[in-house]
Amino acid sequence: MEVRTIKVFTTVDNINLHTQVVDMSMTYGQQFGPTYLDGADVTKIKPHNSHEGKTFYVLPNDDTLRVEAFEYYHTTDPSFLGRYMSALNHTKKWKYPQVNGLTSIKWADNNCYLATALLTLQQIELKFNPPALQDAYYRARAGEAANFCALILAYCNKTVGELGDVRETMSYLFQHANLDSCKRVLNVVCKTCGQQQTTLKGVEAVMYMGTLSYEQFKKGVQIPCTCGKQATKYLVQQESPFVMMSAPPAQYELKHGTFTCASEYTGNYQCGHYKHITSKETLYCIDGALLTKSSEYKGPITDVFYKENSYTTTIK
């Protein structure tokens, strides 16, 4: 009895394709271990004539594949690729409408935090270190965002349907971005203890939790000093293409032309909904596939993004 075979390709990165001759009487799992086709788990399936010449994702289970996976995804987590594939199996079914010149995501599976993050990423200057993220990001900007969303979920250790947080998501993504040249110098002034300067680099240099107003941050924000008295913390120097200011959701007025974009969060910790506000020729609110415009805006804002380049204080 002759062994019926077909020729397929296996890959971990969709760049390096490895030619395989597979036995049609055995499952993919018996031949390769966990195997995925377009995100779908085909591990328990036997090869079919229609699979001839198709590319299958496999887990990096030998040295060659491990090197290829690390170079593309910059992670050695053995569960990463499987999590990416199972997320992709959902995100490829989502709709990605162009809204006001940006790629958004039609609401499904509690994905409003991903839509808000995706919209924000198209408006701030950011370059990702893992080629996987950078490639998928370019495709997302062009309207094909399924891979990018699935990668975000995998890097953030999230599953489809789980509630997510924009600030946490951005923080994970910033860790995989090139923020080497970003720098922030802060000064804390206390009447009792004097003053202390701190220099922050990388992710810490672009994120701040405690106030939404970048102007206020430049002037000074009140913080408790270690001595128990009130101290003032203010920005001395900022070198970065953008800054992200966050605070627990509270009524906040966004003035046209003073910011790049913002995240609105309605609801409580267990259950809520994100919308995205962007400042173009007027203010726009993007909620999944829905767009509304207004000249002014007041609502429960939790993150505001500002364009920056270089700032030095005039406070002496």
Rank of each mutant, 00 (worst) to 15 (best):
S181D: 14
T314M: 14
K191S: 15
G161D: 00
Y73A: 04
A136N: 08
R83Q: 00
S295T: 11
A146P: 02
M245G: 01
L212F: 00
V221K: 02
H18A: 05
E162R: 05
F56N: 00
M85G: 09
C285Q: 09
D41N: 07
S295E: 15
I301E: 06
L173E: 06
S263R: 02
K219M: 13
D303F: 02
H276C: 01
V99I: 15
G161Q: 00
V188G: 13
T199N: 08
W94L: 00
T292C: 04
C271S: 15
K191L: 10
N129T: 08
V42C: 12
N49A: 14
D135Y: 08
C149F: 03
V243N: 05
S50I: 11
Y284T: 09
H176Q: 09
K275S: 02
C190I: 02
V67D: 14
K183E: 05
A247G: 10
S294E: 11
G143D: 03
S246Q: 07
I301H: 01
G161L: 10
K44G: 10
C285S: 07
C261R: 02
Q222H: 02
D135L: 08
Q230I: 14
Y208Q: 08
T10Y: 11
S294H: 15
G82W: 06
Q31Y: 12
T278P: 02
F70V: 10
S240W: 00
L235S: 01
D23N: 12
L114N: 00
R167M: 07
V58C: 12
A115P: 02
C112P: 08
A262T: 00
Q123H: 10
P97W: 08
P300Y: 14
L65I: 07
T116F: 08
M85E: 02
T11Y: 04
V58K: 08
C285T: 13
L133Y: 01
P34C: 14
T35Y: 00
Y252E: 08
H90M: 12
L114K: 05
A146G: 08
C112M: 05
S279P: 01
T258C: 08
F56G: 06
C149P: 05
K219Q: 13
A205Y: 06
H273T: 05
F148V: 03
T116P: 06
F305V: 00
A40W: 12
N309P: 14
T91S: 02
Q98V: 14
G101Y: 03
Q222E: 09
A154I: 05
A136L: 04
C225Y: 01
Q195W: 10
K106S: 13
Q230E: 13
F174Y: 06
A145L: 05
E162S: 08
V221R: 04
T116H: 06
G210Y: 00
E239K: 09
R141Q: 11
L59A: 14
A205F: 01
A177N: 03
S294W: 15
Q31R: 13
T10L: 14
V12D: 03
L212I: 05
G272N: 00
Y208G: 09
T5C: 13
Y311Q: 10
Y28K: 08
R184W: 13
Q122K: 03
Y306A: 06
Y269Q: 15
A117Q: 10
S295H: 11
S86A: 14
N111Y: 07
Q216Y: 03
N89C: 12
I315P: 15
F305D: 00
Y265V: 00
E68H: 04
G272E: 04
T232S: 07
G202T: 01
G228T: 09
E144V: 07
V160T: 06
A140L: 12
Q123Y: 05
V206P: 07
A247K: 02
L102Y: 12
A142R: 11
T211S: 06
Q238I: 01
A69I: 07
T11N: 10
N89H: 07
L200N: 02
N100L: 15
Q230M: 15
I6P: 06
H51T: 02
G194F: 01
L59D: 14
T64S: 12
N16D: 13
H90D: 08
T260Q: 07
A145S: 05
K158D: 04
Y28T: 04
L290C: 08
Q237V: 09
I152S: 04
C156H: 00
K307C: 08
Y113Q: 01
Y172K: 14
C261F: 06
V188A: 06
R141N: 10
T116L: 06
F217N: 02
A154L: 04
T211V: 03
T211E: 12
L151K: 01
V67T: 13
Y73V: 06
P60C: 00
T260N: 00
V304K: 02
G257Q: 09
T11V: 05
N268K: 06
E68G: 09
V189P: 07
Y137G: 04
F9Q: 12
L235T: 02
H256Q: 11
H74E: 08
L119S: 03
D13S: 06
N110T: 02
G39F: 10
R139L: 11
H90V: 12
Y96S: 06
F9H: 14
N100F: 05
T314S: 15
C182W: 09
T27F: 15
Y113I: 04
A177M: 12
R139Y: 09
G267L: 15
L119V: 05
